[in-house]
Amino acid sequence: MKIFIGSSNSPQSLNDLRQVAMIIEEEGHEPLPWNKQGLFPLGNYALESLRDISLKVDAAILIFNEDDAVWYRSDYALQPRDNVVLEFGLFFSQLGKGRTIICRRGQAKIPSDLNGVVYCNLNKEFKAQATLIEWLRS
């Protein structure tokens, strides 16, 4: 099974991406991290490449991290990078809810339309690994 992994390029997100990719490999699947060489060919639009990728993979994992500080309801909040949220929507629409999941680090603010979505909590590393393995095996 080919599994796309999307994240921001922050150091914490890239570290989480590597950890998730290692779990995917250990379970006998092929991780396809967003920063893999050649995944976004020169001259293509990123969104066009993402659409093409969504047609070629079996599942997707998007890593929501506390990447950007935003002013929200008279206070600051930390939220995932906009492109990661957009990518979740793109892969969700192509692959469906059972094959598109969120791994969340910290208390990143997520869009209200995603409230109630069960996610993998990367703050609890052992539980996160067990949860991902269970998902990969289902």
Rank of each mutant, 00 (worst) to 15 (best):
S74A: 15
Y76R: 12
V84H: 10
S74F: 15
F91E: 07
L95H: 01
E87V: 00
K97R: 11
V85P: 02
G98A: 12
D82L: 14
F91Q: 05
F88Q: 02
T100E: 04
F91L: 07
I102C: 02
Y76E: 06
L95W: 02
I101F: 01
Y76Q: 10
V85A: 04
G98S: 09
V84T: 06
A77W: 00
R73E: 12
L86G: 11
K97Q: 09
G96A: 01
E87P: 00
F91A: 05
N83P: 04
R73L: 15
R99K: 12
L78K: 09
C103E: 07
F92S: 08
R73T: 13
Y72M: 12
P80A: 07
F92T: 08
F91W: 08
R81K: 11
R99Y: 03
F88V: 11
R81Q: 09
S93A: 15
L78R: 10
F91I: 02
F88L: 10
Q79C: 05
D75Y: 14
L95G: 01
R73A: 14
R99C: 04
P80K: 12
S74Q: 10
R99F: 09
D75K: 15
Q79I: 04
R99H: 11
R73S: 12
R81W: 00
D75T: 15
L86K: 05
V85G: 05
R73Y: 14
G89Y: 03
T100L: 07
Y76H: 08
I101H: 07
V85S: 00
V84L: 01
E87S: 00
G89Q: 05
E87Q: 00
D75N: 13
V85T: 00
F88Y: 14
V85I: 10
D82R: 13
K97N: 03
L95R: 01
F88C: 06
Y72W: 13
F92G: 06
N83K: 05
L90G: 10
K97L: 06
I101R: 09
T100G: 01
Y72S: 11
